[in-house]
Design a protein around this nucleic acid. Structure first.
Lengths: 141, 141
DNA sequence: ATCAATGCAAAAACTTTGCACTGAT
DNA sequence: ATCAGTGCAAAGTTTTTGCATTGAT
């Protein structure tokens, strides 16, 4: 099924691409940076280059397979497997955990606002930042 | 009045800081990167270093005078003078122009969502991306 | 066999830091 | 006179690119 997705995107089924897709699939609850992906693969004995990870993730993004996020604090981008369902993000500044949510009302309002301004929306990103409940909150690494 | 703001932030009134604040004040409709600020100052015959621009902008941010944004496409951060009124951003992917808006309903929903998840909101960012009306739309530089 | 894809190393892009000098009080 | 603030150059981070080699069809 990975192969199918790659094929559909016009990408040859290579080892790095398959492995990266697998990794993202088994980490749908996390958002990984290119460096994260690279390290994970190395730890699993895969022999990839960081440049390839960047290239592959960029290709995946172009193919609509993954979404790239720039969270507050900017710097490194993180990637998330796109599972078809749109959602926004809520990030704990203390432990870095990311929660996802979706709100029809907000989506509607966004559309209305854009329309009023004569804008054709191509994408949008809503990030909330805060502190999650202590019980669930681990310390930021 | 610039001096007052700087004093209030515990920052000495120096030439670079005053100039940068002035520049931001006369560009409230644009969002400038550190590089932008640097170039503008050089063009106006000011003799500043890029490092100083970064330092000053970071200090301004810490003092709550400016807000740093990481727009899609990430990479370079842009800065906006904080004029007290919260607002969200709508960016034209074609010409780079930024429109500001604010919607009470969206704000409310955000609060409600965070509350439901037991989250204490510290900040949030809503960015819409799209294409603005042709008539107003200049080409991206 | 072919040509896309990879790994490595080098470069690029953006930002921060060290340090000796300058400037505001 | 003092010590924060500055400019410059060097270093740090994250990401991209060039090129010879490898690998999928």
């Amino acid at each position: 099924m990975k192969n199918r997705e790659l094929k559909k995107a016009g990408l040859k089924t290579t080892q790095p691409r398959t492995r990266i897709l697998q990794l993202l699939e088994s980490n749908t609850d996390r958002h990984l940076s290119a460096e994260d992906v690279y390290r994970c693969l190395l730890e699993n004995g895969e022999d990839v280059g960081l440049a390839t990870v960047y290239r592959v993730l960029t290709q995946f993004e172009a193919a609509g397979l993954v979404t790239r996020h720039y969270f507050e604090g900017g710097k490194l981008a993180v990637f998330e497997l796109d599972q078809g369902v749109h959602h926004d993000h809520l990030m704990c500044l203390k432990c870095g955990k990311i929660f996802e949510f979706s709100d029809d009302l907000i989506e509607e309002r966004q559309k209305a606002i854009a329309e009023k301004l004569g804008f054709e929306i191509a994408g949008h990103a809503l990030y909330l930042y805060g502190k999650c409940r202590k019980e669930n909150c681990e310390n930021f690494k």
